[in-house]
Amino acid sequence: MRAEDLVGIWIIESFHMEDCATGLRTQPWGERPSGTVMFDPEGRMFALITPDGRSHPKTEAAEAVAYRSMLAYSGRYRVEPPNRLVTVVDIAWFEPWVGSEQIRYCELSGDSLTLTSAPLNMPQQNAAVFAVVCWRREGALREPNRDAV
């Protein structure tokens, strides 16, 4: 895979986490999360994911919950053959990621992109997990009957 293969805007299709020790799968952002990841040609990326069913917060406490329920980060990215994506994070909703290298393994098939993380610690989890995120290139048609399940 080449960096230019990623350039563009991608819309989330699904997101799950798998506990590294037990294999237990969870969907911390629900069955239909909202999200976008953008890769620009100059080597910068930005990702934002929010859970399904999110409502407009009306109190400070609800705002805090909404903040904790999202994922957002940005940084410079590079692709290392054959399929390793490395992002050097310079801003993130989760401060421990700032300055880190976030590693994802890519599977690209037409307009579908699956990113699988190296083991990582997420603020919502109590153990190391693999995150698996499936994306669809913006403007690409969904597969027939994708929403019929």
Rank of each mutant, 00 (worst) to 15 (best):
residue 9 I to N: 09
residue 9 I to C: 13
residue 13 E to F: 02
residue 15 F to Y: 11
residue 16 H to N: 15
residue 18 E to G: 08
residue 21 A to L: 13
residue 23 G to N: 11
residue 23 G to Q: 09
residue 24 L to N: 02
residue 25 R to K: 15
residue 25 R to P: 08
residue 25 R to C: 13
residue 25 R to I: 14
residue 29 W to K: 02
residue 30 G to H: 06
residue 31 E to D: 15
residue 31 E to V: 11
residue 31 E to Y: 09
residue 32 R to V: 09
residue 34 S to H: 12
residue 34 S to L: 15
residue 34 S to W: 10
residue 35 G to T: 03
residue 39 F to M: 04
residue 39 F to E: 01
residue 40 D to A: 11
residue 42 E to R: 10
residue 46 F to R: 03
residue 48 L to E: 13
residue 50 T to E: 02
residue 51 P to F: 04
residue 51 P to V: 00
residue 52 D to R: 02
residue 54 R to S: 12
residue 54 R to N: 10
residue 54 R to I: 10
residue 56 H to T: 09
residue 57 P to F: 02
residue 60 E to P: 10
residue 62 A to Y: 03
residue 64 A to Y: 06
residue 66 A to W: 01
residue 68 R to C: 13
residue 69 S to I: 01
residue 70 M to Q: 03
residue 71 L to E: 11
residue 72 A to W: 00
residue 74 S to P: 00
residue 74 S to L: 07
residue 75 G to F: 00
residue 76 R to K: 15
residue 77 Y to N: 01
residue 80 E to C: 11
residue 80 E to D: 12
residue 81 P to G: 11
residue 82 P to D: 07
residue 82 P to S: 08
residue 83 N to R: 04
residue 86 V to A: 10
residue 86 V to D: 08
residue 88 V to L: 14
residue 90 D to N: 10
residue 91 I to V: 15
residue 94 F to L: 07
residue 95 E to V: 10
residue 96 P to I: 01
residue 96 P to D: 01
residue 99 G to K: 07
